[in-house]
Design a binder for these strands. Structure first.
Length: 397
RNA sequence: GCGGAGAUGCCAGAGAGGCUAAUCGGGCCAGACUGUAAAUCUGGUGCGCCGUGAGGCGCUUCGGGGGUUCAAAUCCCUCUCUCCGCACCA
């Protein structure tokens, strides 16, 4: 498998208009200008984002011109993709810019913004905010209501009677215009962005009279189709502390192993197939998941960090020991009401919550269960508080 | 513009004057079982206070504001927003 083959197949969901057409252009040696856009409506990037970043990096390494587009303009409109209810909160351009900077910092774990052929950062607010009414109408003129309404998401909202604001409805036009403004040859994005990206393809065809390719990458899911890393508490953030990162990866369902290896690592496909076969033959998937966790931790940090994270994981959870490097809480108070201690250390979100945790036998001090929230406890320097299975805190006085 | 329906906790969705801090489900948290997996089972899931415990008490919450009542998510008025239908389409 050569580099172009790899680029066009691994971790690729679909290519529009066709893989063959894109391959032909690439084989001709032409260098493309491509981009992926992100609406920075959050602050943390998770491993789901990494799928796209890795693909961007491949393009970058092959010498193509890659743009990292921060959607400080589109973000103000609010992308309805994947949202079953109307958006109520809209971000200001300032918030989006700030978040965008965070995105860049985090994504630098995977893609390069310096060195030879660096990835360029652009902000679409720079052109979108300048559009006048005439231009917007002009853009809109390239679409018909019928085309727009075909979109599943819109159909669903109509059927279920969920509001669909025109603001959201217009979103694909804005995103589509980005492709025209930057005059790109290709757009990369998650498969949930297909509609928006194809809107751009239409516009480029109509306004610039050329082909814009669209490459979608699969969303990171397990075999049941559940999104990985999107659910609130379980987000595996790219910048999570290595031990957390390793642990959260281990907590993924077994179904996700093959998918994650394929989409998030450079492990050769043949090797992944081998693992798949072994698991089917009855080998404990945990072994392979550990490999995965190691690979990922290494990729986003370093080999030595990954080794430590793995050691810590094995020690803590497989041998049930207390991890070595844990967060500390500094206090000069030694006598504590356990409830207040949990709140002060943020191990519990409120006093009621703290009480509940204690009642549910989730809290340990130096490996012995705290059975009552009423009797005070004494914490010495170095005492370890454990809440649930995962949360540890060391007291420093 | 007219008519009808509606706005409930993280989501979804019951409730129609006191038994409702609010059914059930999803999510989330904790426990059991484990491979910190999944599946499964159990408990919990507004905030604060008292009590060794069982439990008790107070405060804030059902779109916003006002009112009726000893008592309101539940009744009345009003405002805002949404959905559906009809009309309008110069």
């Amino acid at each position: 498998m050569d580099a172009i083959e790899e680029l066009l197949t691994r971790g690729v969901d679909k290519i529009y208009p066709s893989r063959e057409a894109l391959e032909k252009v690439l084989r001709s040696g032409k260098k493309l200008k491509l981009y992926q856009g992100f609406d920075p409506t959050g602050t943390k990037l998770h491993i789901g984002h990494a799928v796209g970043f890795r693909k961007l990096r491949q393009w970058q390494e092959l010498g193509h011109e890659v743009i990292f587009l921060i959607g400080d303009g589109t973000g103000q409109a609010g992308d309805p993709s994947g949202k079953k209810t109307a958006r109520e909160h809209f971000f200001t351009r300032e918030e989006l810019r700030q978040n965008g900077k965070d995105y860049v910092m985090q994504s630098a774990k995977i893609i390069r913004f310096d060195g030879p052929n660096p990835i360029k950062i652009l902000y679409n607010g720079d052109w979108l905010n300048k559009l006048g009414l005439v231009e917007i109408l002009d853009i809109a003129g390239h679409f018909t209501l019928q085309q727009m309404l075909e979109r599943d998401l819109y159909q669903e909202r109509m059927k279920s009677g969920t509001p669909l604001s025109l603001r959201e409805f217009m979103y694909p036009l804005l995103q589509g215009y980005d492709s025209v403004a930057m005059d790109v040859d290709l757009e990369l994005g998650g498969s949930d962005q297909t509609f928006n990206m194809l809107a751009g393809r239409t516009l480029v065809g109509a306004m610039l009279h050329k082909e814009k390719f669209v490459m979608t990458v699969p969303l990171l899911t397990d075999e049941r189709g559940t999104k990985i890393g999107k659910t609130e508490g379980n987000v595996i953030g790219l910048t999570d502390a290595p031990n957390d990162f390793f642990g959260k990866t281990m907590a993924l369902g077994d179904d996700a192993i093959v998918n994650c290896f394929t989409l998030l690592t450079d492990t050769p496909i043949e090797e992944i197939d081998g693992m798949k076969k072994k698991m089917e033959a009855g080998e404990n998937p945990m072994v392979f998941k550990k490999l995965l966790a190691f690979e990922l931790t290494k990729q986003f940090n370093s080999t030595s960090v990954a080794k430590n994270a793995q050691a810590s994981f094995e020690q803590t959870f497989q041998d049930r020991e207390t991890p070595t490097d844990i967060e500390e809480f500094t206090t000069n108070q030694t006598e504590w009401d356990p409830v207040e201690l949990l709140v002060a250390t943020k191990l519990a979100s409120s006093k009621s919550d703290a009480k509940r945790l204690i009642e549910q036998k989730a809290v340990e001090l130096n490996s012995s269960l705290i059975t009552s929230h009423l009797s005070r406890i004494t914490v010495a320097n170095g005492a370890i508080i454990k809440v649930g299975k995962k949360k540890f805190l060391k007291i420093r006085t």
